[in-house]
Design a protein around this nucleic acid. Structure first.
Lengths: 252, 252
DNA sequence: ACCTGAACACCGTTCAAGT
DNA sequence: ACCTGAACACCGTTCAAGT
């Protein structure tokens, strides 16, 4: 890297030739800031201090650009390490990692979630999910449909969380304003609790189905004893993923 | 513009002044045909045989137009009649009616599902859902979060069905082609089965939670005896909503 | 009151021409 | 090989002017 060639004057943003990955990185920055719709080939070019038409030398078109950004970000996440914990915990870990990624780049993920090819058969994520369902005792013919449904469910809940629908729906039927000022506080912990609630509910539902179908080979411990109650406090719970690799973004 | 001046081709589409509802109807036709992104103020105007700028006299802008179309179509559905069946069946009915609407206008609903204000507190649908959860014995403080999560889950599954993700994910890991030609057939019945599967799973999960929390006042009958098995045939099942109002669109 | 033509400020993308 | 200016075919929307 030749540093001797100093930029002409002032803040030149790019002293290096255009690269596909560099274009993706700049696009991700713009998407994080203003959303996918606001990302424009022309605005991206000026952010890169380049001519708009130069981009087309590295990226076929805008759609391919977005796909590339989504793929690059997804690669951050698809390297989930498996452990030999109970399948319930492994599913929880996969889902919370998914959610962490959604929190990190909400604008991009809201777009990615609407793309049908967001999850690919080669993804380590898909392999981990299907392997977990297999370990749980799901019959082989049902593993892929169940995995697909779980992806759809988690994506649906995350989409509703990201666009604010979850929060708005939970607060429907506005309560009459009492004397004290009870602001709706920050949305964070309540949505944490709701996410755990869906996860627990579908896991419990899966367990029931596995047990009903005769002895399931992998589901020997019932979650009934540790099932959270309706009235469990949002501030803490026994359902925290036991720090086995799921790290949460700083509450902003 | 006098009537004597006819457009070149004889079929004049509009001999009546522009109306807000007429604009919505024409917009819905275009959306059904080509999707929301392809709906353009200019194309809509030519479809109505009007000047593009005339539309702005009845509709503030394109966003308001789309909201209006979504609201008009949603009103078709939000008049769900409640019965006094078991809460499980009532939830199934609400969900399948939702799905019927999604099948009738897939392009529009794929857009509506991404709008956070698609479900409003005044909707009969929301009232029916919360009343059903209340009847099931869900504690009052949890009714709205649970209803919100069920909406998010159903919307997630329907979105994945509409954009083909559900079908694609289910067919991941391509099977080695055996001797016989086992084509993937039509996507319809398999997705019917998957939709019932999610519904049953979350209903079973809810039942478990209700029973675990001590006696739930409304859940006296267990679904265990009628719970479908993993290997139930897709062609029929005991889970059909008993013809109590859920009508399916003609399989196209 | 309702409609309209012209115009503005944007888009994504093509293409021939530069170096 | 990489880049670029000009241009094309679209957008949503504003606005002054028509009837």
């Amino acid at each position: 890297m030749t540093k001797a060639k100093l930029p002409p004057r002032g803040t030149r943003k790019r002293d290096v030739p255009l690269t596909e990955t560099g274009i993706y990185a700049a696009a991700l920055r713009l998407i994080d800031a203003d959303g996918v719709d606001a990302l424009t080939m022309r605005k991206l070019a000026t952010a890169l201090d380049a001519n708009p038409m130069s981009l087309y030398h590295h990226v076929p078109n805008r759609d391919a650009l977005l796909r590339g950004v989504a793929r690059a970000v997804g690669a951050q996440f698809r390297t989930v390490t498996l452990e030999n914990a109970a399948w319930q915990e492994r599913i929880r870990l996969l889902a919370t990692d998914f959610r962490t990624l959604a929190h990190r780049h909400p604008n991009l993920m809201a777009y990615s979630f609407s793309q049908p090819d967001f999850i690919q058969p080669e993804d380590p994520f898909w392999a981990a999910l299907t392997a977990t369902l297999d370990a749980a005792g799901v019959p082989h013919s049902e593993i892929r449909p169940i995995a697909a449904l779980m992806c759809a469910v988690v994506i649906g809940v995350l989409t509703a969380e990201l666009n604010g629908a979850l929060h708005q729906w939970s607060n429907l039927e506005p309560i009459v304003p009492a004397d004290g000022e009870e602001g709706p506080a920050d949305a964070g912990p309540e949505e944490d609790r709701m996410f755990r609630l869906v996860l627990d509910t579908i896991i419990t539902g899966l367990e029931s189905r596995l047990i009903t179908d005769g002895d399931a080979q992998g589901a020997d411990r019932s979650l009934a004893t540790e099932a959270g109650s309706w009235t469990s406090e949002p501030s803490f719970g026994p359902r925290q993923p036991s720090g086995s690799g799921s790290r949460w973004p700083d509450p902003v």
